[in-house]
Amino acid sequence: CHSECLGNCSQPDDPTKCVACRNFYLDGRCVETCPPPYYHFQDWRCVNFSFCQDLHHKCKNSRRQGCHQYVIHNNKCIPECPSGYTMNSSNLLCTPCLGPCPKVCHLLEGEKTIDSVTSAQELRGCTVINGSLIINIRGGNNLAAELEANLGLIEEISGYLKIRRSYALVSLSFFRKLRLIRGETLEIGNYSFYALDNQNLRQLWDWSKHNLTITQGKLFFHYNPKLCLSEIHKMEEVSGTKGRQERNDIALKTNGDQASCENELLKFSYIRTSFDKILLRWEPYWPPDFRDLLGFMLFYKEAPYQNVTEFDGQDACGSNSWTVVDIDPPLRSNDPKSQNHPGWLMRGLKPWTQYAIFVKTLVTFSDERRTYGAKSDIIYVQTDATNPSVPLDPISVSNSSSQIILKWKPPSDPNGNITHYLVFWERQAEDSELFELDYCLKGLKLPSRTWSPPFESEDSQKHNQSEYEDSAGECCSCPKTDSQILKELEESSFRKTFEDYLHNVVFVPRKT
Rank of each mutant, 00 (worst) to 15 (best):
T309P: 01
H222Q: 02
K375Y: 07
T213K: 04
A374W: 14
L212V: 10
I232L: 13
G373V: 11
W408V: 04
A145T: 15
A316E: 15
I379P: 00
K103G: 13
S269R: 11
T127Q: 06
D315G: 04
L212M: 15
P330F: 15
E310W: 15
S400T: 07
N198P: 00
D249T: 10
P411L: 01
T254M: 14
L153E: 15
W282A: 02
I114F: 05
R369T: 04
L151G: 00
T185C: 02
A145N: 13
P351H: 04
S402W: 11
I129W: 10
L212W: 01
H210A: 08
V128N: 15
S166A: 05
G110C: 02
S132K: 01
L227K: 00
P329L: 14
H222K: 01
S321N: 05
K350F: 03
D206V: 09
L227R: 00
K277W: 11
L298H: 00
T213G: 09
F365Q: 03
G256W: 04
L133R: 00
T273L: 02
Y191C: 15
Q121P: 06
W344M: 02
S158A: 13
Y305F: 12
S208V: 05
R247I: 12
G373W: 15
W286R: 09
T386M: 08
K177L: 07
D315Q: 12
E156T: 13
I278L: 15
R291K: 11
C228H: 11
I157P: 00
H341G: 07
Q199G: 06
A168P: 14
G183C: 00
V238E: 06
N150F: 13
K350Q: 14
L153D: 06
I188P: 04
D249R: 07
F193N: 01
G159D: 00
Q306M: 09
L293D: 04
I327K: 02
W207Q: 07
L204S: 08
R124P: 02
D377H: 04
I134M: 08
G131A: 07
L169S: 10
F174S: 06
L196F: 06
N141T: 07
E283Y: 03
L294I: 06
E146V: 05
C261G: 05
R281C: 02
F311R: 13
G348H: 13
E236A: 13
G240Q: 13
L180G: 07
S173N: 12
K360I: 03
E302G: 14
W207N: 09
D249Q: 07
I163Y: 00
N200P: 02
E122C: 12
L406T: 05
D115Y: 04
D292M: 14
A251E: 11
V117M: 12
Q403F: 04
H233C: 06
C261I: 06
Q382P: 04
A195T: 05
S260D: 14
S376F: 00
N399F: 11
I357N: 00
D312G: 06
S260R: 11
G159A: 14
T273M: 14
A195Y: 00
S158Y: 09
R165V: 07
E283L: 09
L133P: 00
L279Y: 15
L108F: 11
S389L: 11
D312L: 04
N224S: 09
T118P: 07
D367H: 04
N142T: 10
T215I: 15
T371P: 12
S158F: 10
E231L: 08
A144T: 02
R202I: 01
R179F: 08
I271Q: 02
Q306K: 11
G318L: 15
F358P: 00
D315Y: 11
T185W: 05
S366R: 09
V359L: 12
C228T: 05
S274V: 03
S208W: 07
D326L: 02
L349S: 02
S119L: 10
A149R: 10
C228Y: 03
K234H: 15
T361R: 04
K350T: 06
G348W: 13
L219I: 06
C105N: 00
Q314Y: 01
S239A: 10
R369W: 07
S321D: 04
L266V: 07
T273P: 14
L201K: 00
F290W: 14
K409W: 15
L227C: 09
R165S: 15
N340Y: 06
R247M: 07
A385R: 12
N248L: 09
S158P: 00
N255V: 04
G243K: 10
G343L: 08
N198E: 01
R176K: 11
S376D: 00
C105W: 00
K337T: 04
E155P: 02
Y191D: 10
I188L: 10
N198M: 05
S396D: 15
T254D: 10
Y305R: 07
F175C: 02
D328F: 09
S260N: 02
L345K: 04
E122I: 02
V390M: 07
K409H: 09
L212K: 01
A168M: 05
L186N: 04
L227E: 00
H341M: 07
S402N: 14
S239V: 08
R179V: 06
L362G: 15
K177M: 03
D206Q: 09
S401T: 12
F193G: 01
F175T: 01
N399S: 12
C317S: 03
S400Q: 01
N248E: 15
D377F: 02
R332Q: 04
K234Q: 06
W286S: 06
V128S: 10
Y355A: 01
E122T: 05
I134F: 14
V308K: 07
T364D: 14
E122S: 15
L172S: 03
G131S: 03
C228M: 03
G348F: 14
K253Y: 09
K226F: 12
L172K: 00
S171V: 03
C317L: 04
L252Y: 09
I181H: 00
W282M: 10
L186R: 10
L331A: 09
P351R: 07
W322R: 01
L345C: 04
K409A: 15
A168T: 15
I378N: 01
R179A: 09
S119E: 08
F290M: 14
K301A: 05
G125Q: 13
T241K: 13
S402T: 15
L406M: 02
S173M: 12
C126T: 01
P288K: 03
T118K: 12
K301M: 13
D197N: 15
R176A: 05
S338T: 13
L294V: 00
P288M: 05
T241E: 13
N200R: 05
T383Y: 00
Y300S: 05
A316P: 13
Q382L: 04
F175A: 09
W408T: 01
F290L: 03
Y191S: 15
L345R: 01
F311L: 05
I232N: 00
L196V: 15
N263I: 12
F299Y: 03
G240P: 05
I134L: 12
A316F: 08
A145E: 08
P287C: 10
Q403Y: 14
R347T: 11
C261V: 02
T113N: 09
K234P: 04
A195E: 00
K337S: 04
Y300M: 10
V397P: 14
R138L: 05
G140A: 15
T309M: 05
L153N: 10
L201A: 05
P388A: 01
R247S: 11
A195P: 00
K112V: 08
L227S: 01
E146L: 02
R347F: 06
K277F: 04
D289Y: 10
